[in-house]
């Protein structure tokens, strides 16, 4: 009973905040609604028994991805009037994308008759039950059966990291001199200073 109430609460909140994400005029508000949608999706995952996925949604999506979205929104300095000016020009493209999404929606609503709602069970029909908790199950599969997919994910992360550095890093050595610590430590008094005995009337040779 409480599970069903919680499910409908979270599901309604996800849909409502999703709608507000695309409807709100201020992009920063959009990101905040998106964060609310992430939180409620995490609640849905808990109800499904996927606790680890729920925690990942909060840690990764709310903690990192949403912050990145906020950065992008702030960096782009979006001018809403300018965006609206392109409405007529991009209208055909927008209609095409809307049609694709409509087809997805129709397919999704067609899945309504797939079966009743099953809440609070950790396993679907095919899920292996190796261990007694969700996170152990994930680990047992991910690091044995799906090793190569996992390593490929690592490589993709590496490419993403290097790509981000290449795209955004600018060499700033021209603006200010950089400290070379090894060079500083290796200095000794004999090289750094010279004793001179200048005589009167003559210059000093350095």
């Amino acid at each position: 009973m409480i599970q069903a109430i919680a499910f409908y609460l979270f599901a309604t909140m996800v849909i409502a905040s999703g709608v507000l994400t695309i409807m709100s005029r201020n992009p920063v508000h959009s990101v905040l609604w998106l964060i609310l949608a992430f939180f409620n999706a995490a609640g849905l995952m808990v109800l499904l028994g996927a606790e680890f996925i729920a925690m990942l949604l909060v840690v990764v999506y709310v903690g990192a991805v949403a912050v990145l979205f906020l950065f992008v929104v702030m960096m782009l300095d979006v001018d809403m009037a300018e965006l609206r000016a392109g409405f007529i020009k991009n209208f055909p493209l927008g209609i095409a994308i809307a049609l694709v999404l409509l087809a997805e929606l129709v397919l999704g609503i067609g899945a309504l008759g797939a079966g009743p709602l099953e809440l609070g069970t950790a396993s679907g029909a095919n899920a292996p039950n190796l261990a007694n908790s969700n996170i152990e199950n994930i680990g047992a599969l991910l690091y044995s059966k799906y090793i190569f997919v996992f390593e490929a994910a690592g490589l993709i992360l590496l490419v993403a990291m290097i790509g981000a550095i290449v795209l955004t890093h600018r060499d700033l050595k021209t603006t200010r001199g950089h400290q070379n610590i090894t060079k500083q430590v290796r200095r000794n008094p004999k090289e750094a200073t010279q004793m001179k005995q200048p005589t009167v009337g003559e210059g000093v040779e350095l």
Binding site: V60, G63, V67, I135, E136, G139, M161
Partner: peptide, 20 residues
């Protein structure tokens, strides 16, 4: 922020690895 996301994901992968 991007570097943070990547190492955040790495830490997230460590949890199921450690218990399994």
């Amino acid at each position: 922020a991007i570097l943070f996301i990547i190492f955040d994901l790495e830490a997230a992968f460590l949890f199921p690895w450690a218990v399994s």
